[in-house]
Computed example of a mutant assay.
Amino acid sequence: MSFPDQIGAANKASIEAALTLANTAFSSAEKLATLNLNTARSILEDSVSNAKSLLGAKDAQELLALQASLAQPTIEKFVTYSRSVYEISAAAQEDVSKIFESQFGEINKNLTAALDKAAKSAPAGSDVAVAAVKSAIAAANSAYDSINKAAKQVAEIAEANVAAATSATVKAVGSASKAKKAA
């Protein structure tokens, strides 16, 4: 493959990657917009229903009991909404990471092929310089892999922490609601 063909192929791959990134961004934005609209509709419906229930209370004790019983579902919906936003964001980040990993791998492959081709036509004694560049590339790849693995571990830890915090919040609100009802 000639040098101009390589440049053309690289440009085509870059355009395809940019289109994939744009589609990922639009898809994530669409999912978030749908989630927000559905959540807003649900909140409006719940607010109307809750207001009707509260207006129907006959005394202060019934009003307090209703408030306590209405708080739990609201908190649970907020937690579910937050978890959904996190899941959409995490999925988008994962898709973007895959695209960049693919591009990085392609660039790495093309660079290695170009170095091998250059080494074949290079003057005698230049093999040391080519080996040094290949070694630098291997070190950069190793560092990239290590950083990538560490980022994935951080994401897994963050996801576990979000799940634990969500569970703790729901339990705490449930306990508080039960304590109010008992009082």
Rank of each mutant, 00 (worst) to 15 (best):
S28K: 03
N23C: 12
A119Q: 11
F104Y: 12
N11E: 15
D46V: 02
R83C: 14
S69W: 05
A40V: 11
S27D: 14
P73D: 01
A119E: 13
F26Q: 07
D46Y: 02
Q93C: 11
S89Q: 08
P73T: 00
T80P: 05
S126R: 06
A119P: 07
R83H: 14
S49G: 08
A68W: 11
D127I: 09
A18R: 09
L55N: 15
A29E: 10
N38E: 10
Y81Q: 05
P123F: 00
T112H: 09
S27P: 08
R41Q: 12
E30T: 06
N110W: 03
Q67A: 09
D116I: 10
Q93N: 14
S28E: 10
I43T: 05
E30W: 01
A13S: 00
L115M: 07
I107E: 15
F100A: 12
P73C: 01
K117Y: 05
L21F: 13
S84E: 15
S49N: 08
S97E: 13
A40R: 03
V128G: 05
T39M: 06
V79C: 03
A17N: 05
N36G: 01
L70I: 04
L19I: 10
L64K: 02
Q103P: 14
A17G: 04
D127N: 06
S47E: 14
F26V: 04
S102F: 14
I75L: 07
V85E: 07
E94V: 13
A71P: 13
N50E: 13
P123I: 03
K77C: 06
A40W: 08
T20C: 11
Q61R: 00
L111R: 04
A18P: 15
F104G: 12
T20N: 12
A118Q: 02
N110M: 08
L35F: 00
I75P: 00
L19W: 09
T34I: 13
S14W: 06
E45F: 14
A118F: 01
P73I: 01
S28Q: 05
A22L: 02
Q61Y: 02
E94R: 09
N23Q: 11
A57W: 13
A33T: 01
I15A: 09
A22H: 01
I15W: 02
Q93G: 15
P123R: 00
D59N: 00
Y86E: 08
S126M: 14
I99P: 00
K52T: 14
T24G: 06
T80C: 04
S89G: 10
S47W: 09
A71F: 06
A29T: 05
D127A: 07
L21A: 11
N38D: 10
A33Q: 02
A91N: 02
K117Q: 08
Y86F: 07
A68S: 13
Y86Q: 04
A118H: 01
